[in-house]
């Protein structure tokens, strides 16, 4: 794939992101005309729309944007590390760990402040990832073993969640279920600001590491032969991957299949060279989550469908189709 094609794809994706962002500002229970939406972006908006745009729609869309980018980028890194197209942050137990701690907080501690929920989720995600890294360690790390072990950790986390869900009061259980589903409902600037630094640091870090990821993709032996510090590079990339996914899950719950869909679509568009793939994945992911969020609000108002349900319902069939089309021996 040529550089020009990559530049073209990136431009189109960025434009599509902006278009969905604009649509997200316009559409809703209180419609905003396009001209007003555009004006308010540059700060000249009618004060009548100010609250809806600035306090409700823009932060929510931004959270969706960042969460999507983070999850997709995390998935792309993990797929590169494991050289397996089905690897996703959810599979190595990140979602499970985040969900386990978040559900404990919601269900078991009624007074737990909602604002602190993301921190609990983040700690859970990190702990689960560390655990699967440690358990998979056998004379060196192996992302492949980590996937297998992660499935077990995810299953343990599920059993733990099930325990809380079956033994507690139905109202807090329902709240926990909505969180588990993954949604950007009611996200405000209080969610945007804590998330921003993570992405501002980790996205460039991931892009800088892209070339080393390319080397790792050649296989451990070749990478060592080329002078790559395999273990250190891999640990660093895994850390980036876990922090991106953990921060995203912490803010919006477990929105499914972004880590799989984003990179796959990006690979179709720009090929598999890491730098191009990672950058395009991030924009694909953000586009999907923003669109899913918008769709969830617009389909059956006033009912809101969590974005996570929409991404799962769309993502899984797409994934099955992809697997079927790309089947090849070996």
């Amino acid at each position: 794939m040529s550089l020009r094609r990559w530049a073209l794809v990136m431009t189109v994706l960025a434009a599509a992101n902006l278009a969905v962002l604009l649509a997200g500002i316009m559409i809703g229970e209180f419609p905003v005309p396009m001209w007003e939406a555009l004006k308010s972006v540059v700060g000249l908006g009618d004060p009548a729309y100010r609250f809806v745009i600035h306090e409700l729609r823009v932060p929510r869309a931004l959270v969706a944007f960042m969460v999507g980018a983070g999850l997709a980028l995390s998935g792309a890194i993990l797929q590169g590390l494991t050289r397996n197209p089905l690897a996703a942050p959810g599979v190595i137990g990140i979602n499970g760990g985040a969900a386990a701690l978040a559900v404990t907080a919601i269900v078991a501690i009624p007074t737990f402040p909602v604002a602190a929920l993301p921190f609990a989720a983040f700690v859970g995600a990190l702990a689960a990832a560390l655990l699967s890294y440690a358990l998979a360690w056998r004379r060196g790390s192996s992302p492949m073993r980590m996937l297998l072990v992660g499935v077990g950790i995810a299953a343990s986390a599920n059993a733990y969640i099930t325990f809380w869900v079956t033994t507690r009061d139905i109202n807090s259980v329902k709240q926990a279920m909505v969180w588990l589903m993954g949604s950007t409902y009611g996200r405000t600037w209080d969610h945007v600001w804590p998330l921003l630094p993570w992405l501002a640091i980790l996205v460039p870090a991931a892009l800088i590491m892209a070339r080393r990821l390319d080397v790792l993709k050649l296989g451990d032996e070749l990478a060592i032969g080329l002078g790559s510090a395999v273990e250190r590079t891999r640990a660093l990339l895994l850390l980036i991957c876990v922090c991106l996914a953990g921060a995203s899950v912490a803010m919006a719950g477990t929105i499914g299949f972004i880590g799989l869909m984003g990179p796959h679509i990006a690979r179709q568009l720009v090929g598999s060279s890491s730098l191009r793939l990672l950058s395009a994945s991030a924009l694909c992911g953000s586009l999907i989550v923003m669109a899913a969020d918008l769709l969830g609000r617009a389909l059956w108002p006033p009912l809101e469908i969590p974005a996570g349900i929409i991404t799962s319902a769309l993502g899984a069939p797409y994934l099955i189709y992809l697997l079927y089309r790309n089947r090849r021996p070996g």
Binding site: L86, A88, G90, I309, G315, A316
Partner: peptide, 20 residues
């Protein structure tokens, strides 16, 4: 295991979706 985990994720989230 990856195919299973993927399909399980899909099925579980659909069940949750209905229950919500």
């Amino acid at each position: 295991i990856l195919a299973g985990a993927t399909i399980n994720l899909l099925l579980a989230s659909l069940v949750q979706g209905i229950l919500i």
